[in-house]
Structures are given as structure tokens and as C-alpha cells.
Design a protein around this nucleic acid. Sequence first.
DNA 1: TTAGGGTTAG
Length: 937
Amino acid sequence: MYMKFGRVKPARYLFDEMPVRNEVSWNTMMSGLVRVGLYLEGMGFFRKMCDIGIKPSSFVIASLVTACGRSGSMFREGVQVHGFVAKSGLLSDVYVSTAILHLYGVYGLVSCSRKVFEEMPDRNVVSWTSLMVGYSDKGEPEEVIDIFKGMRGEGVGCNENSMSLVISSCGLLKDESLGRQLVGQVIKSGLESKLAVENSLISMFGNLGNVEYANYIFDQMSEHDTISWNSIAGAYAQNGHFEESFRIFNSMRRFHDEVNSTTVSTLLSVLGHVDHQKWGRGIHGLVVKMGFSSVVCVCNTLLRMYAGAGRSEEAELVFQLMPTKDLISWNSLMACFVEDGRSLDALGLLCSMIRTRKSLNYVSFTSALAACFSPEFLDKGRILHGLVVVTGLFENQIIGNALVSMYGKIGEISESRRVLLHMPRRDEVAWNALIGGYAESEDPDKALAAFRTMRLEGVPANYITVVSVLGACLMPGDLLERGKPLHAYIVSAGFESDEHVKNSLLTMYAKCGDLSSSQDLFNGLDNRNIITWNAMLAANAHHGHGEEVLNLVSKMRRLGLSPDQFSFSEGLSAAAKLAVLEEGQQLHGLAVKLGFEQDCFIFNAAADMYSKCGEIGKVVKMLPPSVNRSLPSWNILISAFGRHGCFEEVCGTFHEMLEMGIKPGHVTFVSLLTACSHGGLVNQGLAYYDMIARDFGLKPAIEHCICVIDLLGRSGRLAEAESFISKMPMKPNDLVWRSLLASCKIYGDLDRGRKAAENLSKLEPEDDSVYVLSSNMFATTGRWEDVENVRKQMGFKNITKKQACSWVKLKDRVSSFGIGDRTHPQTLEIYAKLEDIKKLIKESGYVADTSQALQDTDEEQKEHNLWNHSERLALAYALMTTPEGSTLRIFKNLRICSDCHSVYKFVSRVIGRRIVLRDQYRFHHFESGLCSCKDYW
DNA sequence: TTAGGGTTAG
């Protein structure tokens, strides 16, 4: 009696005082202890009984085993009981063996459960259900359904628990036809009014994407518990109806007081999809206030929320502060690092999991494999491949897919194909990964061949397949042979209506050189999403239509669509290329207003824009302090100093970066070497070039070699430049010869120049620069016959020279000038102003340098031609129209002419104006008669 | 019976 009322003390006293104790007294005492939760003490009694040789009743054993499962930490005790039971022949008791199979299920050992199950002489619903629970907890819904079918096959009727289990497993498998059958069985078995069954039906329909039906069931229920509310909110959330999900949470607060940690997890997963800026931090605070901040699952969702918003530092902090972490926490943080590009951190996490003997599963390895996304990860990728084989995870479909993808991204495409061919089952994801790899390695033929084989093997293509194949055909020559037939396939296979496919088609046409088809596709789209707009932005950027990029961004805004990081970066880089400071500033301001201030892509794009618009001071101010500056920011800073002629700062910044322990990359050296070349720092540049391989283990790329050729050539060391080309680790391309030719022009080296021109025209027969440079070279050395010859060839091949153009921007108007331009409404005033300037600077000692003249005429005509240069017209106009003392900002599409450079210097001193001129390559800051380029450009 | 981690493209 005392035990029935949970009064342990008096019961134990009575038990201890009993002169004789029989089986019943022992059993009563033991089952009582288990009932009140004193599991370990119950276990002690069990051991004593075994020692004395008193047989516990099967009921008592079953409850003790159940207790071992419930405690969560009494696995060894449970196994001990199993041993006793097996010896004493109690396994034939259905209650005892069911309890034991349930115990193994709880501790994740489903194969042990199954063994016990198979050896049972007879089974009841609870035995079947217990086996199902084990598989359900392990995340194997297929098994659950198989067991359910076996149970039905043996004519065992189901109960509430087994029905709920199978319904939720069906939802996880997204098996619609089974779902329909189950609804029929629920009605037949009369379980339709059971709360647990109704709840699992809600979640099943949520998983099947049928929110209406989930909602119908919810509305029909006579009562709702917390699980019902959570299930319906989850159903809406899963299907993207986030607002509705919110509405449910609000009603929940009104009609149902109880909220649990699952409610909070669901709410958080919804918030991961809506405006993080607005809600994220608030909800984090709320979680703490509600006391859920130590629930593992809630913390995991919180971590995911920060990860989804691209804030890996905050996610890391959540992880560090978690009182207990499970496998999902570790996997989530690893995935977050991968998404944020922190591959080394992700792999470090895997290492510490292995080191501390944490349990790992296939998800851990898929993330680690995804971290290896570029050639430098080849060794690490191979090690992971080995680990995956050793642990037997190789058989896992998703791991196989991740391996195919990894080798593709690393550039080991033949290895990627080999993995695919050895897979027991090749699904569409595996094929898509292989096709993606071929696209990455720019091999459209192999991508299309893989696409054909895939279909021959009977694997149906999905929209990602189509997107990947399209992504492999992006060269101008691909359009007729591959792109258009693909478009035809897309239409016939019914992929045309897919948003992703449409966007990829748009990109394909643009990259293949057919911007107007892209435009047509864009115009024909009814619902353009952000990705469509971004694709169109990229298409225009690719064709150099910066103005259109900016137009599209403002059009987006007028239509009420917020630009995202991608749109802003594209817009900012367009503004940078056009050197339109006002537009760039407006975009940057808007990005900050929309909460992108901390986004590193955006502040880097903005910094680059300020640099290319001449605002060097702003760049220095806006980039993060050197302690937490990322590699792209360092690169931008170095190139900004180089572009503005601040060469001491270039070297200083580079060394500061090294002191901070940042390893320079490919881009760093391009910026560094370009700066040295423009600053005439020849020996310094050569030293930096040597560092690439020697000190940092990087392979010099052709871009670096071009910089060295430029460096040597511009300083007149033409023989060395030529010999460098012959010793380069790769084949010279057009840019190599163009650079050498340009240097030969400066120094009048006809022989080398001719050779360079020949090599260049072999590689780029249509290019105008070879003719322009050669004719300039001949002109400056007085070889007028050769000049005429080149001109004739150009006419013959229908090649036209790119026209020089300079412009000035005043408020919202751009005034541009060609050579000898007389189309401007204020032409007369402009030419009059030019005469004034000429007079003024001649009085100060200016003498025209006609040695660079390109026409065979007399001196007077040569000088007259110089005064028709576009940059001079722009200068005169700028002087006329801007307030005295303000800085003049002038742009030119080609390199500034050396005599104009001298005129600008005189003007800056004589008229006392600061002038900033941006030519094709760099900025010139003129002040008090000097230029920042120190006359070397 | 409800919630949290993964592969392909963008």
C-alpha cells in the first residue's frame, strides 16, 4: 500500500523489518521503486534478488527494462537484465521481450531489437510498434513502413501509436499514394478521433505539400494540444507560407497558453526565411527570456538562423555558448562555415570531432566534402575520400554525390567521372554534379555527352540538369551548335516554364553574345524574381553596358523590389567602371540603409567603386581596420593606392598585410605588380614576382607574367622583356604581345615591335589594337610609308580604330568630346577658351611636343592637331563651367596623350586648379604643376 | 504524434 502511494520511506522500513520475505514482497518493493523513478535502487533490488535466488516476476522485469530505457543512461544495466532473462527462459514472455527490444531501439541498436523481435514466439501490437519506434528514431522511415506492412500482413490490428508512427513516416518519405491508403485505414480502424493520429496526419499533409488538407484536419478536431498547434504551424512554414505560420503562432498565444521548445524551434525556422534584420536578434532575446536557451534543438535552430543570414561569427558564438551540443549542432556549424566560405574552419571542426571521438555520420562528411571546392583542396579531398571508404559511408548515395561534386569542383574531372561510374546507383544528383564539373572546366562537349548518357540510362533530367547543361555552353561559339538546340529540347521537354531554367537561358544567350535574345526573354517574363533581375544585370555587365545596369537597378527599385547583395555588387561595379561617383554613392547609401553595411561583398565593391571614382581617401576610411581585414579588402586597398600613384603606400600596405599574418593571393600580386609597373619600380616588382612561388608556394599565372613584361617594357628593358616571354611557364597570349608592342612603340624599337605585332595578329586577327599600336609606332619613328601600309590593311580587313573620347560630368549631365569635336552647343566658347589656355601656358614656358604626332604633316599642323585632342576640349569645357578653385574631374576612354599630360600640368599650376583625370588604366592627380604619376604611366 | 543538420544549380 505504501508503495502504491509512492511512500518509499515507510515501505522500505516495513520491508526491512519483515521477518520473512517472499517473492511477492520483493516484487512489490522493486516495482514500487521503479514506479517512483528510483531506477538505480530498483536495479539494486534486482541484483540482490538474483543473488539470493528469488525469481522476479515478468511484470517487474518488463517495468525495470522500460525504466532502463527511460533513464537514458542505464544501457549497461538493461543489458544485464537481458542476460538474466535469456538464462532464465523469460524471453518467451511477450511483455519482457517487447520491453527488451524497445530498450535496444531507444539506444539506437535497431539490429539488436530486430534480433530479439525475430526470436519471439509470439508478438503483439506493442512488439511491432516498439520495433517501428527504433527505426523511426534512427531516421529510417522506409523501414517503419515495411514493418507496418509486415504487421498488417500477419493480421495484427494497429493501435494509436503504430498508426501515428506510420503516418509520420509516410510524410517524411513524401509518398502521396501511401498517404491516401493510410487515410482510408485510419477511418476503417476508427482511430480518426485520436489526438496523436490527427496530429500526425496534419504533419504528414504538411510534408506532402497539401497545406489545405492539413488545415482541414486541424479545423475538424475537437481539441488541440500543443503538438497540434506546432504541427499546423510547421506545415505552413514548410510550404513557404511564412506569414500564415506567424498568424498561427499568434492564434496559439490567444487560444492555447502552452508553448514548448518545439514551438520555438518552428518559429525560429520560419524567421530564418523572413527578414532577419528585423526579427532575428529580437527572437534570440525572446528564446533566452522563455528559458529555452539551453535546449539543444532550439539552439540548433538559432544557429541555423544566423547561418542562413550569412553571419557565421554569430552562429559560432551560439555554438560556443551551448551547454550541451549534439551531432546536429556540430554538423550545423560545419555546414555554416562551408556556406560562408570558411572551408578551413569547417575541416578543422571535423578534425576536432575525430580527435575527441565524437560520433560522426554521413552529414558530417558531406559538409566536409563540400568544403573542398577548389584545386588547393585536392590533398584534403583525397584524405576525406579515404575516410569515407574506411567508415563504409562510401555506399551512401548522398556521400557518393558529394564526392562526384567535390572532384568536379577541384578540377579532377576524370576522378569525378570514375566515382560516378563506381556508384551502385547513379541518381540525377550525381549526373548533375558531373555535368556541373564539366561546365566548370569549360568542356561543353563532355557536359552534353554526360547529359545524353544520363538519359540513356533512364535517369530523368530535372531543372538543375538543364541549368547545369546550359551553364556549360557560355562561349560565343556555343550558341548555334549547342545553345539553340538545347533551347529546343527545353521547350519540348516542358522545362520552359521553370523560373530557374528561364534565368539560365537568359544568361546563356547573354554569355554567347546574343544580348538581344536575353532582353527578349526578360521582356517576356511575367513574374521576374530577384534572380531574374540579377541575371539581366549580369548580362548587361558582361556586354559592358554599365549605364543599363544602373538603369535596371533603379527600375527594380521603382517596382518595389529590394536589390540584394548580388544586385548591389553588380551595380557598384558598374558605377566603378563608369566612374560615376554620385550613382555609386547613392547605391552604397541604399545598401547601408537596407542593412548590408557589414556585408563584405558590398563594402568591398563599394570601396573599389570609390577607388575607381577617384575617392582614395574614402577607401581608406571605409575598409575595416587592419586587424580584421579580409584578403579582398587588402587587395582593393593595394590596387587603390597603385591606381592613384601612391607607391609607397602600396608597398607599405603589402608589408603590413604580411605582418598581420594574411597570406597574399593571386589577385594581391596582380595589384602589386601592376602598381610597380605603373610606378616604374622595376627591381621592386621583379622581387615581388620572385616571392610568388618562393615565399608563398603559389604558381605564377599569366596575369603576373604580363605585369612583369609590362614592368620591363615600360622601363625600356625590352630585351629582358623578350627573353622573359621565351622563358615563361605558359604559352604567351594576346595580352603578352600587346604589352610588348606598346613598349616597343614608346621606345621606337621597330624590330621587336614588328615581331610582337606579327604574333599578336596571329592570335587576334580581328583586333584593332595591333594596327593602332603598329601605326603609332611607325609614326613616332617617322616611318610614314609603313603607317600608310598599316592603314590600308585596316581598311582592307574592315577594322576600325577605337575612337578617343573624353567626358566631364556636371550634376546629372555628361558632356563628351571626340577629336576635334564641334557638335557641342557651346563649341565656339570652348575653342575660345582653348586659345586662352594656350596663350597662358605658353607664357609660362609650355612648348608643344610634336614627336608623338601620328600624321605626316608640317610642325604647325602637328601642333594644331594636338589642340584638337578630346581631353583638351573636355579640359576647356570643365574650366568654363565649374566654380573657381574646385577640383576638375575628367575622364578619357583611352590612355592620355603625353603632350596633353603636359598641358594639364601647366594648367594646374598657372590657373591653380586641382585636376583628376581618369584614363583607361589609372588616375592622374594634377596639382601645382606636378602629376601623381611622376610622368611615368 | 510536433521542431533542428546533408548532395546537384543559382
